[in-house]
Nucleic acid binder design. Structure first.
Lengths: 245, 245
DNA sequence: CATTGTGAAGTGATTCACAGCA
DNA sequence: TGCTGTGAATCACTTCACAATG
């Protein structure tokens, strides 16, 4: 995917920088966080359309493919600039490039993964990373028996090497897939080494300095949220029959 | 964890049903979605405190452990009922039980996992599910060569058996860990079999009937969101130097 | 008297609805 | 004519700030 974006980038670079990036007179506001979180979804939808050789899509089409309503999609896109054509819709490849650029996917990002258990393995082999401009630069595990083991075309390193490798490969994103008990220590080491974005799969709250971004994915939390709704459905959607006051 | 909740449940069952479940005169409103999403985090924090034999915690303590501010925590808890003591704080085990009950973790939930690739394997072995009241009832894969293979103490079944197994084990939650191309078909089969909550790891938008809940986790989307912020940091937090208008 | 529980105020996100434009 | 881009209205969530209270 990145490759086709790269092709586009030559053709479009003239307009690429002449954005106004939505927003008010202060002239520098970012995109609302909720919109940012949806841009990758739009990108995915556009990529799928592009692969089916669709040239143009209306906000309605795109919104359908992304699973949102069209007003929200148009509002989100309006923060990036004016990339549509009234009466027509959006040029799929053009918009795709604009979004990729906005997210920062026209450059490659190096990530390291720490904690190569079941999940770490799965992440290391996850094709979705590499296809979207992320390069797994190194894998780490604290268990000395695992160090040296091959996973895909990488070899697991010991935590002691983390600082050096992060610096030499200019890694800016770290993925934590350790048990909860190790997560804060690993996080501290990553931050110390210069990583400034962290994706945390460990079920633990991390504290980091203000300049570091953390996002978390907790698999069991997602299931618990589903369980809550499941329970409500089973209860007849209210608590009408639960009784008492 | 569930086992200790189960112990508690005998002692506390008298109060268990006498809730008012927050909220206004219509007397039946659910808890705001944003609050629901945090309840599992509070539960985790309470479990950690409980394991350290902490008996009582203030909203400030708890909020710290959960990584939110105390006003938000108190507001969230207020939707569940009045479980604190002014001037004192919250009884850790009591509150833990109340939240577990609200989420629905005082009962066990059966889940099936479809798509036993790298990620499916990791999920099948994930200790966090079982420790939080989720039982993996069966694993499915469409690849006939994989059917019969053991993963943990389960054997992979073919998709053809999905309907029967979902019904016989009263499974209400399905986890999709297939490639995107298979996801909608698997989803349809799950819904057809009677599953009413789905956790989707495939990078695809699923359409489901209204009574079915879907939550999604997309690993590469999380990285892309981090990349966006990373790019902004690299740009000096605005677009001041990007130039042009 | 420390801490909860909660109205009220503030902030942010979504949806509406239509003017503006190709 | 059809569809985008966007103010204005609405809805949801967060934070403030303090009265109520064990």
């Amino acid at each position: 995917m990145l490759s086709s974006c790269a092709e586009l980038s030559g053709a479009l670079l003239t307009t690429a920088r002449s954005r106004r990036s939505g927003r008010d007179e202060r002239g520098e506001r970012g995109i609302p966080e909720a919109s940012v979180a949806r841009l990758p979804i739009y990108l995915r939808a556009l990529t799928a359309l592009s692969e089916r050789n669709v040239v143009t899509a209306s906000s309605e089409d795109l919104a359908g493919a992304a699973g949102v309503n069209s007003a929200k999609l148009r509002k989100d896109l309006s923060y990036l600039g004016t990339y549509g054509t009234r009466g027509v819709g959006y040029d799929v490849n053009y918009l795709r490039y604009q979004i990729a650029r906005e997210i920062g996917l026209t450059q490659d990002w190096s990530v390291v993964i720490v904690g190569i258990g079941n999940l770490g393995h799965a992440l290391a082999n996850y094709a979705g990373f590499v296809s979207r401009g992320f390069r797994v630069a190194a894998l780490f595990d604290s268990d000395p028996r695992r160090v040296g083991e091959r996973v895909g075309d990488l070899q697991i390193s010991g935590l002691g090497d983390l600082g050096a490798i992060v610096k030499s490969s200019s890694v800016s994103i770290g993925v934590i897939a350790t048990p909860a008990s190790a997560a804060q220590d690993v996080c501290d080491r990553l931050v110390e080494a210069g990583v400034s974005s962290i994706l945390n799969f460990a079920p633990a709250v991390l504290s980091v300095p203000g300049h570091v971004d953390v996002r978390k994915v907790d698999l069991s939390i997602e299931l618990q949220i589903l369980a809550y709704h499941e329970q409500r459905k089973a209860n007849g959607l209210g608590e009408l029959q639960v009784g008492a006051v």
